[in-house]
Amino acid sequence: MDVTFQTVMSQLMLGLNNGAFYAVLSLGLAVIFGLLNIINFAHGALYMLGAFVALLGYTELGPLLGMPEFHLNYWAALIVAPLVVGGIGIILERTMLRRLYRVDHLYGLLLTFGVALIFQGIFTNYFNVSGTPYDGKPELLNGVVNLGFMMFPTYRLWSIVVSLTICFGTWFMIERTRLGSYLRAGTENPHLVQAFGINVPLMVTLTYGYGVGLAAFAGVVAAPIYSVSPVMGAEMIITVFAVVVIGGMGSIMGAIVTGLALGMVEGLTKVIYPPASSTVIFFMMVLVLLVKPAGLFGKEQ
């Protein structure tokens, strides 16, 4: 087997890139699970929706408005898609999820799984399952950068940087700010936080909106790399759930670090033993659960 420094590094960087997506997605899941106690199976579908907002905004929105020359550009999509999908999330929470907080986790999981299937079904009806390329990648992010040890596509480097910024920004907001202390306290004892005069139901709604907005953001960032497909979320979500389980349910830092690390483990496996690269995360999950059932960063309850 010919393992050179070059191949290892390039797989590590590509792994870090995938890991950055895992991190943003599992971070959203962790935030939602912490405060809402909902295992949000719709997360993958909302990630897919985010990518479609970017795609359709670029190709269809102009003609629809009677301005064929108009394209919703990439930078605008980075803001619009999270807002649109966050809004959908808020409607979901207000009309459906809200009724499930008092009952077992399983109901939330089933509901969100059903919602995911509906979104996925609708899009499968109208769009190519094998993917539609997104052409809105900005000129600025074309080309490659010389990292010293390898040439790396600029866009992929950008996607790593922007994902990490979002992750650590979110971590900072939750762990170091006043708003974050409401969230942390609300995760522990929502009734008492509400008895202090904080509108906890509103906070829960906005948190869900933020969590799924993160998924949509990841969808937009992913659109130029992977082609936009109705099943892109379904493929991603299984791995992301493994990441969340390994990191520990509800742990913010756990989600980020585990996401990045497992992306790189996956990349390394592609060099060492390629056939295992799609299953290595699940082997890791089994191992971690045997040794630490609450996950690497989770607290035993």
Binding site: R184, A185, T187, E188, N189, H191, L192, Q194, A195, F196, G197, I198, N199, V200, P201
Partner: peptide, 22 residues
């Protein structure tokens, strides 16, 4: 709702004290 009642100027100290570990 509870948060509106608290805003009328009530401070509540629960039996289990409710100190947050996080």
């Amino acid at each position: 709702p509870t948060h509106r009642i608290a805003r009328l100027g009530i401070g509540y100290c629960p039996e289990e004290r409710g100190i947050f570990s996080s």
